[in-house]
Amino acid sequence: MKPAPALAEGFPDLSGMRIAREPHWFRWLSAALIVFVIALIVRAFAGGQIEWSYVSRFLTAKVILEGIVNTMVMAVLAMALGIFLGVVVAIMRLSPNPVLKTVAAGYTWLFRGTPLILQLLLWFNLALVFPTIGIPGLWSARAVDVMTPFLAALLGLGINQGAYTSEVMRAGMLSVDIGQYEAAQAIGMGRLRALRRIVLPQAMRVVIPPLGNEFIGMVKATSLASVIQYPELLHNAENIYYANSRVIELLIVAGLWYLLVVSVLTPLQMLLERRFARGTLQFAR
């Protein structure tokens, strides 16, 4: 065997030498430029025709706080209805039964295909189509009494949300490996039990980021319910400025509240993601 040759000359030992920090001149310059532009904008607004005292006074006004509570109640309930419908419709869509499939596809087509504000107005004005509603012989009522702004907003927002959520859920269920369905079947599970116990829990992991997106959208979409007199945040802010004409101040108040709510929701989503990441290497115990 040949002895190992001696190391060649001209390749010095670099261990122990530090890597120098780069100055990043362009980053500093662009950051300074952005700060400057923001300062200009802030200055413009500060000197503009905005009475900031009104903003701070109405930020915690009772009517505004009631509005944000109504906004959150509606967002949560409508989203719950949307997720329920979305799961049911997604399961129908993936079923081998052509009737269920067609019904599900038709639902998604109808409610995704028309503007949300139009659907809200239709629900709210249902009394024009059916003056009285009820179960023949058992119970009936005038539609105007039943179809309150609350119910109209809940149905309008929830059913519309269901159409979008069904596609999110369907994508999640399709992302689960076919082998998981087969393994569930092999231990004797039927389709629905396999979906509930095996497929949906795995789909949740994929589905939560887009659902978080949808929920943030829902919080803001509740503002459309102001057109049907549901007393949510924007509607209440409008009512105040109809009285005192401080339009911009109250719009800023509403805007700050929407921003705050959305900022709180983001870390909540992270917690949920962790919960459903059980068994993946990233969060394995």
Binding site: Q180, E182, Q202, G279
Partner: peptide, 8 residues
């Protein structure tokens, strides 16, 4: 491919 349930 085993097909164990990864969340269990």
């Amino acid at each position: 491919r085993f097909n164990l349930f990864p969340h269990k």
